[in-house]
């Protein structure tokens, strides 16, 4: 164990928010610590150590993953999208916009993970009912909002993405399916 701990470093190449990084890491390094401590992307948060809360949710190759439960080495060769890459202040992803419009956050700590989980939910179910949104957010915990405004926020985003506004729809799809924060300036 002692040998594995620090003497072995393995190279990992990940595409994070459209930018490629190759770094040497301990095999045990969690993806979330790679993002936060090595790459300095502190928007992804850690709320628990048992995969319950989903504050650390990111998109890996377009799918929502709890980054506290994935090793950095498992992400080798993958495309990762974090909250910093899904949209920017100037060009918010519809889910981000929904959270702002509908007061879907209070302390903001769970928010990045919930936004990423909601983005994946809408990828799979573009037009969910309130009940489906509530079921679909099973993997995240929010202690502040009581969830109701999160449901409103996700519904708002669904409507925006369904709307005739093709630009929004295309941008959102690109961000989701390719795992690349294609809309924002925060990607490089």
């Amino acid at each position: 164990m002692g040998d594995l701990r620090s003497s072995v470093q393995v190279p990992v190449t990940v595409l994070v928010n459209g930018r490629s990084y190759t770094v040497d890491v301990e095999p045990r390094l969690l993806l979330v610590h790679l993002l936060r401590d090595v790459l300095g992307l502190t928007g992804t948060h850690i709320g628990c150590d048992t995969s319950q809360c989903g504050a650390c949710t990111v998109l890996v190759d377009g799918k929502a993953v709890k980054s506290c439960t994935m090793l950095a080495v498992q992400a080798d060769g993958c495309s990762v999208t974090t909250i910093e890459g899904i949209g920017s202040v100037e060009n918010l992803h519809p889910v981000q916009e929904g959270f702002w419009e509908k007061h879907g956050l209070q302390c903001g700590f769970c928010t990045p993970g919930v936004i990423m989980a909601a983005a994946d939910l809408l990828r799979q179910h573009p037009n969910p009912t309130d009940e489906e949104i509530r079921e679909g957010l099973e993997g995240v915990i929010c202690r502040c909002t009581g969830y109701q405004n999160i449901v409103r926020a996700v519904r708002y985003a669904a409507e925006r993405m369904q709307s005739a506004d093709g630009e929004v729809e295309v941008a959102a799809t690109a961000g989701l399916d390719r795992g690349e924060g294609s809309q924002g300036g925060a990607t490089s």
Binding site: R36, T42, I83
Partner: peptide, 20 residues
């Protein structure tokens, strides 16, 4: 609309563990 939200929804909040 909340004025604090833009930083939170874009991952730019400054929580204690973010201090590096």
């Amino acid at each position: 609309k909340r004025r604090e939200d833009p930083r939170f929804i874009t991952g730019r909040g400054r929580y204690t563990d973010d201090v590096q």
